[in-house]
Amino acid sequence: MAVAVAYAGLALVLAVAGLGIGGYFVYTKSRIDPVARVDAIVVLGGDHDGRQEYGIELAQQGISRNVVLSDWLTGAEATAKYCAILDTRFVVRCVRPVPSTTRGEALFTRQLAAENGWTSILVISWRYHLPRARYIFGQCFDGEIRMRAVPRDYRRSLAAWEYTYLYQTVGYAKALLQGAC
């Protein structure tokens, strides 16, 4: 019995270490595409970590005339102020995804692209979500997809990083099982 417990403990340690090492290379070192002119900037929902500001800044620099903010936190004051921006250089649209997931965001992007003739998008999220978001958007959107991380550092505990890597990995597995949109 003691040997079985020791093996189980060793297996757990190896799984946690494997997730941490693998997560570091897959998520922390994820590919970030260069900024280029696109038909629309799509800012994914989530933490108010500067992503809305970054999307608006890129539009102000002339990267796109269209900014789409995922408004899955309906009523959130932080998102509402960006939804109300009026600028002659670009249009801001706030859309609530159905379902309230990355897949829902990819689905509304596909619909908006079809309605507006968009063939290229720049998707903004936090760095650790980019690989999964790239996969999901690739399943739902036929045009050019560029991915950019919010330009900021995240300071977290080792346990928080393990949770982040596990969450993203489980979400990736779900997306693989769901397949194309």
Rank of each mutant, 00 (worst) to 15 (best):
K81F: 09
D33Y: 08
I41C: 01
F137Q: 03
R134K: 09
G20F: 13
I136W: 00
S100Q: 13
A76D: 15
L177N: 12
L122S: 02
S100T: 08
I21A: 14
Q178W: 01
E77G: 06
Y7R: 02
R103P: 02
Y128A: 11
A8H: 14
R155I: 10
R96M: 12
L177G: 05
T109C: 02
A114Q: 10
F90D: 06
L177V: 13
R31H: 03
Y167H: 09
R65V: 05
I85C: 02
A15E: 04
V38E: 10
G46P: 12
V16I: 15
A2K: 15
V67K: 00
G45D: 10
Y7D: 15
S70M: 06
I136N: 02
L177H: 14
V98R: 13
E115H: 10
L73G: 09
Q139H: 06
D87C: 05
C140Y: 02
N66Q: 08
S30R: 08
I21G: 09
A159M: 14
T102W: 00
L58T: 00
G22R: 02
R31G: 01
G62H: 02
C94T: 06
A106L: 11
V92A: 01
G18D: 12
R127I: 07
L177P: 03
E77F: 11
A80E: 08
G143H: 10
S64K: 01
Y24I: 10
P99L: 09
G117H: 11
D33I: 13
S100Y: 00
S30K: 05
I124P: 00
L112H: 11
T101C: 14
L12Q: 08
L158R: 15
V98K: 11
Y154Q: 12
P99S: 11
A114P: 06
Y172G: 01
E57D: 08
R93D: 06
P151Q: 04
Y167I: 09
Y54C: 04
L177S: 13
A159Y: 02
A78N: 15
W161M: 05
L130E: 04
G55N: 02
S30G: 09
E162C: 04
V3Q: 14
R132Q: 07
V98F: 13
A84T: 05
V3W: 14
H48L: 12
R134P: 07
V92Q: 01
S125K: 03
R148V: 00
Q168W: 06
Y135T: 03
A4W: 11
R127W: 13
F137R: 05
S64D: 03
F25R: 08
P34V: 10
